[in-house]
């Protein structure tokens, strides 16, 4: 049995030696989901990082723990990595839209108002896609808006028409909105942090007074 100085480890009764383990099969650690957060009300959602999870619901829980535990957050989106389509990456001063050559698919008979347009779009089997831009390499993708399209490729062309003026655009992510799990406005109290957790903030630790007092005592003590 494994011996340890640490009684808590010794109690586990772990074996002293074990054969090496076999390589794990794929997805033993689950697939990944990409997470976007909203730092405060009214700001755009921005990419924060991935989580590994067995389902979108669990991914949301992990994401909340991982990405909102320590920083302000007012909303979160989670989507499976495999649901994201992306362009290639260009340089920090370029726009990736400039490298898209295909022209936009045109739709005959523009509708007089937006709700008509929407109704027609749904009738054509189109859906909402969320568009994210990366403005600078090493930074995070930010949500710039929604487009309506029948495929990710078409959504990208729609995005070019809607947001193609922006500069620079290093990389674009396109996600079908139906593949995104979003936090609910009604549940917004889940983002409020209890004020009793100050002990996790650097600012809660003020030791200079104690150090100064100690130094004074040392200076005053006859031993010195």
């Amino acid at each position: 049995m494994l011996t340890s100085l640490d009684p808590r480890i010794a109690r586990l009764g772990l074996p002293d030696s074990q054969p090496t383990i076999e390589p794990k099969e794929a997805l033993d650690q689950f697939e990944t989901f990409e997470v976007f957060h909203q730092k405060k009300d009214g700001t755009a959602y921005a990419y924060v990082g991935p989580v590994h999870a067995p389902s979108a619901d669990v991914a949301f829980l992990f994401a909340k723990e991982q990405y909102s535990r320590r920083f302000p957050c007012t909303g979160m989106w989670v989507t499976p990595t495999r649901a994201i389509s992306l362009t290639r990456y260009v340089g920090d001063t370029e726009s990736v839209y400039d490298t898209l050559t295909e022209s936009l698919p045109t739709h005959a008979g523009a509708a007089p108002d937006e709700s008509m347009q929407q109704a027609e779009a749904y009738a054509r089997g189109e859906e909402d896609y969320a568009i994210f831009h990366l403005k600078k390499r090493g930074k995070a993708h930010v949500h710039v808006g929604m487009v309506r399209a029948a495929s990710p490729a078409e959504a990208l062309l729609q995005a070019k028409a809607a947001f193609g003026e922006q500069r620079p655009v290093v990389n674009v992510w396109v996600v079908r909105w139906a593949d995104v799990l979003t936090s609910d406005e009604e549940d917004r109290d889940i983002w409020s942090t209890t004020p009793e957790k100050k002990y996790r903030d650097a600012i809660a630790y003020k030791v200079q007074d104690r150090i100064d007092r100690f130094k004074q005592e040392q200076a005053a003590s006859p031993a010195n």
Binding site: T32, G49, P54, T81, I84
Partner: peptide, 19 residues
């Protein structure tokens, strides 16, 4: 736990995270 959760998982293919 991982085995049980994986059995329910829909995604059959590994995809690496994007960023």
């Amino acid at each position: 736990v991982r085995r049980a959760l994986k059995a329910k998982q829909q995604a059959p293919k590994y995809v690496r995270p994007l960023a």
